[in-house]
Design a protein around this nucleic acid. Structure first.
Lengths: 220, 220
DNA sequence: AAAATATTTTAGATTTGCCTAAAATATTTT
DNA sequence: AAAATATTTTAGGCAAATCTAAAATATTTT
């Protein structure tokens, strides 16, 4: 069963899905996410509306239809399964997998993805801790406790990162933080919302607001 | 290193390469292979000439330059490695792998392909028995296929033995293997490179590395 | 070596996805 | 509630890859 959608269409649908989840969906944000211009996004929105993937009318808010959301979940599934494969089987660093999976996610065979899923043993989360939708399109919610919200002296593990930005992943690598890393908040500074955090069993280091709000943790 | 070529350009280069090998290269044949029209092929030939991938001038014969051939071998390498992956790891039937690999071959990361190659243990032939170019672009002639290199579930006939050692022939007799015997690899064990092989129509038996590397086969 | 036939190229459109600039509409500020 | 500002859409173009129809060139037949 060949996918009926172009790569550009799939990229828009996926971006709309993510922005919708974060609650920041607009023509401007959309074009920014896709590195195009707002006018280009409008062109595509019309096409997606024609294909009944979104509801849209001029100057109004728009959103995915049920059909559009199903497609989005399918694309997210492909993307995250390939990320898992790249990380787990080919031993790519977790800051490299996103860019490659962006390309692989558009390979259109359903059967391929289902076989890949089975081969990988039906993983539930990708290398960034994001949940992988199953073949039926069901996806668990991601846990929501951020490092920034963690109580003082409560040991926890990193279970996800909130963004795939290369710069963030680079920083994490620098601090030797990855999925499963144990962290513990030692001190909090209201001035700039930075905090002192103990990583693994090393001496505590200073982490900024942007970073601590991007790390999802789970209490041990 | 991002690929500098579009999917259409890569498809043309690959098709030119194959037609050139078969000795039937012409604008008409090319467009036929790509399911386009001759006029479209001419348009693309001009572009490929500008990019110095082929030599071409109006109404003359054309062919790949060294640069073009290097690119073609690289694309063939990607295609056949993915075919091998699909067949060996995901257990696709060998008649399904080609179409999917047509899409996967355009994913542009060099590093991905080299890691895939290593993960697959540097296979020398794809599931159809076609040779896979190595990272340097060297490709063996299609021939000399050993039982050890035979794809899973591909029926073949023994056509030669690589040695005349009495011990070897004795072993062959024991297993009831001779020239013309039909064999089919059912499972491969990376641990000691042994494999389970179905001989004629009997139940599969276990054969060691030394033996499977001494038997030359030909796909049926 | 002409004539007939076949192949290839040119010329001019079409579609997709993108752009810039200007117009239309929403939102925010005063 | 106007005015100012910001966002979104329309209008008109461009490049890539395709097409059809016609012209140019090669090849084959007589």
């Amino acid at each position: 069963m060949q996918s009926k959608y172009t790569i550009a269409e799939e990229n828009y649908i996926k971006a709309i899905f993510h922005l919708q989840e974060e609650g920041g969906l607009s023509t401007g944000k959309l074009s920014e996410a896709l590195k195009t211009k707002p006018a280009s996004a409008t062109d595509m929105l019309k096409k997606l509306k024609d294909k009944k993937l979104i509801s849209w009318s001029p100057y109004k808010k728009f959103k995915l239809t049920v059909k559009g959301k199903t497609l989005a979940l399918n694309i997210v599934r492909r993307h995250r399964l390939w990320e898992y494969f790249l990380s787990e089987k080919l031993h790519f660093d977790w800051d490299e997998v996103h860019a490659i999976a962006e390309e692989m996610e558009h390979v259109s065979s359903e059967k391929l993805i289902d076989k890949l899923d089975a081969y990988l043993n039906f993983p539930r989360v990708d290398p960034h801790g994001d949940p992988i939708p199953d073949a039926m399109g069901n996806m668990q919610q991601r846990a929501q406790l951020r490092l920034a919200d963690l109580p003082i002296n409560a040991p926890a593990n990193i279970i996800a990162v909130a963004s795939q930005e290369l710069q963030l992943l680079e920083l994490l690598k620098h601090f030797d933080i990855s999925l499963g890393t144990r962290v513990e908040v030692k001190k909090r500074f209201d001035f700039d919302e930075s905090m002192e955090v103990k990583i693994k069993n090393k001496t505590a280091i200073q982490l900024g607001e942007a970073l601590t709000k991007s790390l999802i943790v789970k209490l041990i």
